[in-house]
Simulated assay, not measured.
Amino acid sequence: MIIKYISFSISIVFFSFIVGMIITALIKKTNFYNNQLSNLNFIKNELTNNIIGIGVIKWIVRNTFFKFLNQKIKIERKINITDLKNIRNEMTKSEIDHLFAFVFVLIFITILYFKQNYLFATVMLLVNIAMNLYPSLLQQQNKRRIDKLIFKFKN
């Protein structure tokens, strides 16, 4: 039974990636995206990031097939400020994609909760956190690092 819940949750979360990309594409040119969403920073403290396990997600992204998913988010040896800004924009897009995907799956979780299917809702929530929320938090952490590099280039 639990295997069924896990596999269905993974399926919904993978589908949510597409939903997140569509929503981001629709709002990308708006002021809301450029002013509010592109500068989100939920966790500013690196210690907190480490405590909640962002480092584990970073290792998974670096050392598994996930490293091949978004090739635009790579820093080459020789880099300039324009490249850094482009990478930051791609990170922002990826972060927002994952956030919208996270919210999309929360709708399913809420329905399961109201149907009193607590185990399924919990499994889906955990999968959603691991596959949508944590990658978004990882992008925020990486954006902070990129922002420091951009600041160094400017000075």
Results as ranks from 00 to 15, higher is better:
134 Y>S: 06
24 T>I: 02
86 N>E: 11
57 I>R: 08
92 T>H: 00
50 N>S: 15
100 F>H: 01
53 G>M: 05
44 K>C: 06
21 M>N: 12
45 N>M: 05
107 I>T: 10
148 K>W: 07
25 A>N: 15
16 S>R: 01
36 Q>R: 11
27 I>M: 06
13 V>Q: 08
46 E>I: 12
46 E>N: 15
144 R>G: 11
50 N>W: 13
25 A>T: 13
112 L>P: 01
116 Q>G: 03
14 F>I: 13
18 I>G: 00
80 N>I: 00
38 S>W: 03
59 W>F: 15
87 I>Q: 00
60 I>N: 09
71 Q>V: 10
68 F>M: 11
66 F>S: 10
14 F>P: 03
94 S>T: 14
91 M>K: 11
130 A>D: 05
107 I>R: 04
58 K>A: 13
131 M>A: 08
112 L>F: 12
93 K>S: 13
51 I>K: 12
49 N>R: 11
125 L>D: 06
59 W>S: 14
64 T>D: 08
59 W>E: 13
130 A>K: 05
137 L>V: 02
55 G>S: 13
47 L>V: 15
85 K>T: 05
75 I>C: 05
57 I>A: 11
101 A>W: 01
81 I>H: 07
150 I>Q: 05
112 L>A: 03
67 K>L: 06
104 F>L: 07
102 F>A: 06
71 Q>W: 04
147 D>T: 07
55 G>I: 07
34 N>Q: 14
140 Q>H: 01
94 S>E: 13
